[in-house]
């Protein structure tokens, strides 16, 4: 029986990977969003409300929370169509802060078994008991998280191999050239935003049910900054990049006791060093291409 602490770390890596992938999808299409935590948070609240207050099954709550997150992301995507660069980053951050501050005001409680349950502003939202009520063990829930993560990865790999994924990367490399190639950026920017919102949303609902307690403060800017940093550390050349970033941060920095108190210092330093020496991460496009061509030669031989 693997111990529960280790499992918690592993499942945490899985859930945070989802928001990292969400930020990654926007990064490769050339947009730095500081606001993916908003969609993570929206879905965490919506999903938890669905199971805890309305008695929905988890899969339906997942779909509901993520769709709501995708809807919000699409809305923000439409609003921010005409801005890019720093302005886009600030607009997404502003929206995320709006969501977080609204959650402080959100009170929606229902009496269940003689107890008031539901989000209660700054007090947070506890008693998200789906896991206990359904006798799901930590191991089983971890497997569920990784099952969903694998599905998302599979889906992203398909996208990256398709023309759609190529157009996302084109927008990231040279938006003007993309336009003079006859491609309408509006369509692709909004598509990327919606997909990214949905992926962050999956992580959010899973997160709420794993920790059984959420509060607005969890979905602050630092979550979004981390989500961005994971892709930038691991690399923007492959979907595995952000996962490597998460593994380095949560798997190593947070779990190794020696650097416990200095985690943020080490992490911040790492991000700064990466941006100077490897601005597109460890596995950037060139290194991924290089590795792929080596692999191809190796298979042929």
């Amino acid at each position: 029986m693997p111990n529960d602490y280790l499992l918690t770390v592993i499942s945490n890596i899985g859930m945070i990977s989802l928001i990292a992938l969400s930020a990654y999808l926007l990064l490769i299409s050339g947009e730095i969003s500081f606001g993916q935590q908003a969609y993570f948070g929206i879905s965490a609240y919506a999903g938890a409300i669905a199971t805890t207050l309305w008695g929905w099954p988890l899969w339906l709550a997942l779909l509901f929370g993520s769709s709501l997150a995708a809807l919000a992301a699409g809305f923000v995507g439409l609003l921010t169509l005409r801005i890019s660069g720093l302005y886009f980053s600030i607009a997404t951050l502003a929206f995320a802060e709006m969501v977080r501050l609204s959650l402080f005001k959100l009170t929606y409680q229902i009496e269940i078994d003689g107890e008031l349950i539901g989000p209660n502003g700054a007090e947070g939202f506890g008693e998200i008991r789906w896991i206990f009520d359904n006798d799901v063990s930590v191991l089983e829930y971890t497997l569920l998280i990784y099952g969903i993560l694998l599905l998302v990865l599979f889906f992203l790999v398909l996208i990256e191999r398709s023309r759609l994924g190529m157009i996302f990367r084109m927008l990231g490399q040279d938006p003007l050239l993309t336009r003079v190639q006859g491609l309408n950026p509006v369509r692709y920017k909004v598509t990327a935003a919606i997909l990214a919102g949905f992926i962050a949303g999956l992580g959010g609902t899973l997160y709420a049910h794993s920790f059984t307690y959420i509060e607005p403060q969890i979905f602050n800017m630092m979550l979004g900054v981390h989500a961005l940093a994971y892709g930038l550390i691991g690399g923007l050349g492959t979907v595995l990049g952000p996962l490597i970033g998460v593994a380095i941060d949560i798997g190593f920095l947070e779990s190794v006791r020696v650097i416990q108190g200095y985690r943020m210092v080490v992490f911040g330093g790492l991000v700064a060093l990466m941006l100077i020496f490897m601005p597109r991460g460890i596995f950037d496009e060139k290194r991924v291409y290089w590795l792929k061509s080596i692999a191809r030669r190796w298979f042929r031989a």
Binding site: S162, R163, L164, M166, R169, M170, Q173, L177, L183
Partner: peptide, 27 residues
């Protein structure tokens, strides 16, 4: 597009209806 291959650079430049419909299909 420096990060795309030569073939991909030409492929994305072709922007006809049949390619747009096939956006999800593997390169």
């Amino acid at each position: 597009f420096p990060g795309l291959t030569v073939w991909q650079n030409l492929w994305v430049a072709r922007n006809s209806a049949e390619d747009t419909r096939a956006e999800g299909i593997s390169y």
